[in-house]
């Protein structure tokens, strides 16, 4: 088994197991229990937990500190890092800070525009973009050097990930954009939430045609609906989200008290279908403020118990 970092996630993927990751959003305050409680609910059912970085541009407890909380409880974190809020000095500095706590996974993102969040009058930085952040982490890890060229003492040892959104436009270049991320050095991908499975399968076909599934592990992203209202909101309000009408109707036609259960059913059925899709290396289950449902989804799809690797 050929791995480049001590990341458990990398080891599981390299061993050919279907990986399972999930994510927790940090609180809008400084209470660490908001993180540790969520992590406790799911720690035995996932291989690693992403911590989001001020998602939707709303100010929250920082991803790095929350990742350290996970690390201290023995859970494997995936540090999400957006290029919106920090320049290259701060990005490299935070990468080293994470490395000093032996955080071994990073997800390189651009971040939502700040106009969606609580500081629409703030600046955005974007000194680098997500693809250049991938390059930067690989450079720091593999060359042991800063962007500026100086040597790093004890370089970071991180498994480098990024997101991919097969549902954004223009569709026909979405596989090419993944190729660009692969060129930059990305090693794993967690996709945007998948509701339109046909379109996802089409994207995966284009990705396979480019030979990319040989070069990068793709974790399919899923978010169960809690209600019909959430399905409508995701369809109409969230940028880059593709929720087909039949999925919205299925939720809407379910009696209110059974909608949550139906949302989980849809998620489970999606995983069952995507498990068979060539090139899918695992699942990223984003149960937004509904972490307690992750174990049920993992168990019902036969992904439990999680493999042990050393």
């Amino acid at each position: 088994m050929n791995t480049k970092t001590p990341s458990k996630l990398e080891k599981i993927l390299a061993a050919g197991h279907m990986a399972v990751t999930s994510e927790c959003g940090p609180p809008r305050g400084s209470n660490p229990e908001a993180i540790t409680k969520k992590a406790e609910m799911i720690r035995n059912h996932v291989d690693a937990i992403n911590i989001t970085d001020n998602q939707t541009s709303v100010t929250r407890l920082c991803s790095l500190a929350a990742c350290i909380r996970l690390k201290l409880m023995g859970v494997e974190p995936v540090l999400q890092m957006v290029t919106r809020d920090r320049n290259r000095i701060a990005l490299q500095s935070d990468i080293l800070g994470a490395a000093s706590f032996d955080i071994h996974n990073i997800l390189c993102l651009t971040g939502d525009h700040q106009s969606f969040g609580d500081c629409p009058q703030g600046q955005n930085v974007h000194d680098l973009d997500s693809i250049q952040l991938i390059q930067t982490v690989r450079h720091m890890r593999d060359e042991g050097k800063f962007i500026g060229g100086d040597d790093i003492q004890r370089p970071p040892s991180m498994f480098v990930g990024a997101a991919a959104n097969p549902f954004a436009d223009p569709f026909h270049i979405r596989a090419l954009r993944l190729a660009k991320k692969v060129n930059a050095g990305v090693e794993f991908i967690q996709t945007q939430c998948i509701y339109n499975l046909d379109r996802f399968e089409k994207w995966m076909e284009m990705v396979r045609d480019l030979g990319l599934t040989e070069k990068v592990f793709i974790l399919a992203g899923l978010t169960p609906f809690k209600s019909a209202g959430m399905a409508k909101y995701m369809k109409n309000r969230v940028p880059g989200m593709d929720v087909p009408d039949e999925v919205v109707s299925r939720m809407a036609e379910t009696p209110k008290e059974k909608q949550a259960e139906e949302g989980i059913n849809i998620c489970v059925e999606s995983i069952e279908r995507l498990k068979e899709l060539p090139g899918v290396a695992g699942f990223h289950i984003m149960a937004i403020e509904w972490e307690e449902k992750v174990p049920e989804i993992v168990e019902r799809t036969g992904l439990y118990p999680r493999p042990q690797v050393s």
Binding site: D129, S130, I131, A163, A168, P170, K180
Partner: peptide, 8 residues
């Protein structure tokens, strides 16, 4: 190196 995932 765009477009980002928000392009619709």
């Amino acid at each position: 190196n765009g477009p980002c995932g928000g392009s619709t």
